[in-house]
Amino acid sequence: MTSKLYEILSQVFDIDISLINDQSSPETIENWDSFHGLALIDALEMEFNIQFSISEITDVKTVADIKKHLKNHSIEI
């Protein structure tokens, strides 16, 4: 599942998958702005058939945080 998440991140942010790790953040990924942030939410919600809350979205600072919130939605990563 981690590879699936990285694949989505790679597509949304248009960067090589090898550049993504759990510590990746808006500071390390140039394209990670509010527009791509919302695009990422869309992609994750569609892929995993879930709905995030506002607090989950604003809490995300790194890829590890996304994993944490996916786990809260019972998505095993």
């Binding site: 509010s34 919302l38 939410i41 869309d42 506002i54 979205i57 604003t58």
Partner: peptide, 8 residues
Amino acid sequence: YPLVFKHR
């Protein structure tokens, strides 16, 4: 985000 979230 709170404004746009549901209508993004």
